[in-house]
């Protein structure tokens, strides 16, 4: 680039090819604006996948290798679930699959065939009130950088629904699959205890 600060790319390695880029999927009205771009054949997307994401039908083609997390983030542009390890070791990618919390990074997208996925984006109605767990996370400052937070919130909602909120020790144990490197653990426990009450009342 030294000789070309204005920035026309110079001729480069012969390996470069110009394939037409498709976002590779997902004509889903209202899911995410970028996802509604014209889908074109993405290399490797050989599997047809039909599922429901946040209550909406998704009909798309995926690469069999694609994780549920990468499907959500890269194809459906639902970037709330996060990649923190890509090996099921941190919980940042937690979503609900048929109502149960799972590590979406370690779930083949293909396994979501005909199943229901709930992500942080679908936890509360858009523009409306927050889910009691989300509000409790704010109230107890159960977060710092916020990167693990969507996964924590999704895990926490499950933790309550599973009935694992008998006492602080049980919450700690059942929230240990979600690493918070900022160390907001005491706030997370307090938020869950608070939200558990509100969820029962609600």
């Amino acid at each position: 680039m030294d000789d070309d600060p204005a920035g026309v790319p110079p001729a480069i390695s012969p390996c470069l090819t110009r394939r037409e880029a498709g976002l590779g999927a997902a004509l889903v009205a209202g899911l995410a604006p970028a996802a509604a771009q014209a889908a074109q054949a993405t290399p490797g997307a050989t599997l047809r996948l039909v599922l429901r994401v946040n209550g909406k039908a998704v009909d798309t083609m995926v690469d069999p290798r694609t994780s549920l997390l990468d499907l959500l983030r890269e194809q459906l542009h639902l970037t709330g679930a996060k990649k923190g390890c890509d090996h099921g070791q941190c919980g940042a990618c937690t979503v609900h699959l048929d109502g149960r919390r799972v590590a979406s990074c370690l779930t083949l997208a293909a396994k979501a065939q005909d199943r229901r996925v709930l992500t942080i984006e679908g936890l509360a109605p858009p523009g409306g009130a927050l889910h009691p767990m989300q509000q409790a996370f704010i109230d107890h400052d159960a977060l710092q950088c916020g990167y693990c937070t969507p996964g924590q919130v999704m895990a926490a909602v499950s933790c309550v629904r599973e009935g694992h909120v008998t006492d602080a020790a049980q919450i700690r144990e059942y929230m240990s699959g979600n690493i918070c490197r900022c160390g907001a653990y005491t706030g997370i426990v307090a938020a869950i205890q608070d939200a558990a009450t509100r969820m029962r009342e609600g």
Binding site: G88, R101, A103, G177, N178
Partner: peptide, 9 residues
Amino acid sequence: AASQQLRNM
């Protein structure tokens, strides 16, 4: 073993 997420899978 593991975490509740992984035990669900």
